[in-house]
């Protein structure tokens, strides 16, 4: 059996391999996108364990529904659309639990993400990254999900307005207005935070 190096193939080519049940191609797709997907879901749901489970679900869905992928679109757009749908459903189903976990998030202190940060960083850098990340994450968590999702996709994942509209199946104009409003809310929340820091 000949060895195929899947790293040289494009996403769409890998999808063809996956539809032929080639698991190595599926592993390659996962390794390309797992970091981005788990970060997106972590910013969205605000809990690492839930984000981890949801990101696994995303890739399971990709594998089982690979025949539904439309080759006219970008694979990443389809992947993030699956992730966004799963995250929305999760938040709807677990609205009470999410509120509790966010309360726990607040109570647990600002430095509970240390083990999630890249271990190559020095302790000081880890501390800084943790601090900023947690403050911004808190501010994001306090936003309504429809503002949160556009801000994560547009500002953190750096998708274009058109791509965000395609991922979330909404109009480009809606994306723009939500980004504008979400940023205003976020700035307001982070302004208070920064003023507190100055004291």
């Amino acid at each position: 059996m000949k060895h195929i190096d899947y790293k040289n193939y494009s996403d769409k080519e890998l999808i063809t391999f996956i539809s032929n049940k080639e698991n190595a191609a599926f592993v390659e797709i996962m390794s390309r996108y797992k970091e981005r997907i788990i970060n997106f879901l972590y910013r969205y749901v605000g809990d690492y364990d839930d984000a981890y489970d949801l990101s696994q679900e995303v890739f399971v869905k990709v594998y089982l529904n690979v025949s539904q992928f439309n080759a006219e679109h970008k694979f990443a757009t389809w992947l993030f659309a699956i992730a966004a749908n799963l995250a929305r459903d999760f938040l709807k189903k677990n609205s009470k639990q999410t509120i509790t976990s966010l309360e726990n998030f607040e109570e647990a202190g600002d430095y509970n993400l240390t083990e999630l940060i890249d271990s190559a960083d020095s302790p000081e850098v880890k501390y800084d990254k943790n601090y900023v990340s947690l403050q911004v994450q808190k501010a994001l968590n306090s936003l309504q999900p429809h503002y949160r999702e556009v801000l994560i996709l547009k500002e953190i994942q750096q998708y274009t307005f058109d791509e965000v509209a395609e991922i979330l199946s909404i109009e480009v104009g809606t994306v723009k207005s939500r980004v504008f409003r979400g940023k205003a809310l976020l700035k307001e929340k982070l302004k208070n935070l920064i003023i507190d820091l100055d004291k």
Partner: peptide, 26 residues
């Protein structure tokens, strides 16, 4: 400033066992 704050958020890492556990689920 907001963009910088959002983009300098520390990324969360994924354990190496991620792919294997997804394959098991599948």
């Amino acid at each position: 400033a907001l963009k910088i704050l959002l983009r300098t958020m520390a990324p969360v890492t994924v354990p190496a066992s991620f792919e294997a556990s997804v394959l098991n689920k599948v």
